[in-house]
Amino acid sequence: MADTTGTADPAHIAGSEGEGVRRRDFINIAAVSAAGVGGITLLYPLISQMAPSKDVLAESSTEIDISKIEPGQAIKAIFRKQPLFVRNLTQVEIAEANAVDISTLRDPQTLDERTVEAEKNKKGKENWLITMGVCTHLGCVPLGAGEGEIKGEFGGYFCPCHGSTYDTAARIRKGPAPKNLEVPVYEFTSDTVVKVG
């Protein structure tokens, strides 16, 4: 770069610093560096614009009335544009979930960790299983929350896309999903209302 052009020796024009380093080299490096840094800086907004926008990110919490959910029933709600499962477990389902040796699980968690301890006022809420309705494999909505839907061989949820099967604590038991269904942050504001988010 910046080699001699034409017949005139640029060392005479730009002023020689000796040892082949010339003022022009400095200008060259400074100009290319400034342009390079400028170019990279320009990339930042171009990349950042693709991230979720403010309105999408805006904190949203959803209040759900759970008074109508009988034991054994579940509802689908919407939380941050994604489905949320609220399930009222029966005593049999709770016993089933507690009977599992958690060391055999892919994502070891007890039912208590997923229900009672997820909630701040820890009393008698073991039957409320609140999870995202988003399969941890590739994001499908598993079946099992709606009336008459297949619950899979472990009695919880079954994802029809790739066959991930969850148990009554919505823990992954079989199929390609790596994790249990996600438990969001939630809080019971009264005995019949739960605030998610």
Binding site: A51, S53, V56
Partner: peptide
């Protein structure tokens, strides 16, 4: 989330 511009496919994703 960056690819979708949100937590699930929505306007942002459809537009891009």
């Amino acid at each position: 989330h960056w690819l979708l511009g949100g937590f699930a496919p929505d306007d942002a994703a459809l537009n891009r």
